[in-house]
Amino acid sequence: MNPIIQINNLNKSFGQVHALKSISLEVNESELFGIIGPDGAGKTTLFRTLATLYTPDSGNVSVLGYDVVRDYKKIRPLLGYMPGRFSLYQDLTVEENIRFFASVFGTTLEENYKLVEPVYRQIEPFKNRLAGDLSGGMKQKLALSCALIHKPRLLILDEPTTGVDAVSRVEFWDMLAILVKDVTIIVATPYMDEARRCNRVAFIQEGEILQVDTPEAIVKSFKKPLFGVSHKNRFKLIRALKNYPYSESVHTFGDSIHYTDQRDLPDLDGLKTYLHDMGLENVEIGTLIPGIEDSFMALVLKEANHA
């Protein structure tokens, strides 16, 4: 089966800024594919290229079997695209917005109601409210309904959950999990924890793809033993750990500090003694299972050390 998205050596620059550096990527049919990386990593540039709004400087990009430069007219009707900071028409109601996008794509709300139902049902009670008066989470649901209304074959969602609260984010991903049965989805997000909701993810940082894999495999690729160190004076603890001669990485994480050691067999008693000498008593140290974010940070630091 041909991949839905195929990117080969894609480069794109804006003046001095090399926004995408030799990116290669494949997304398969019915995948929920995540592009994960911070602001400024190149996610939006990549997505606009996929949506045929930017042309690559070099490299080949095909979407649904068509070339994004040559065949953009064939690609566009097959896409459901939700740009970042997309804000709909604030002065139109929920229903007017969705009916507008339906008509623009030559369809009607009734015709494709089944398709958007899992999303639209949740905002339908507010269908006469102006889009400008919706909360962040509801706006995202409406935007998603609008992107879905013409039964696209590929959904391109650029940071749909940015600035949205944790509950709405969970709901949003729940909906994507339902939708992916009918449509391939590629979604960008700066939230690392959302990676586990994807079939596969690509980490992107400063225009480069660091790793592409399933969330499980990415976590497994974190080979070093990871320790959680905690003490009530977190600031002092971070300082002390960073100054420890054998420390490799020190990151605040939830209720503890995630720590890796340069040595293959870390000497935990030695570490405890060191911390005690630094005036930190009753430090707790435990072994941890690494998460997605640990892996991402390890990759970024490895990359930085190479450079």
Binding site: A51, L53, R76, F86, L88, Y89, V104, F105, G106, A147
Partner: peptide
């Protein structure tokens, strides 16, 4: 400014 032009461009319009 609202980001809607991106969608209109991608649409069959």
């Amino acid at each position: 400014e609202l980001g809607n032009m991106e969608i209109l461009l991608v649409s069959p319009l």
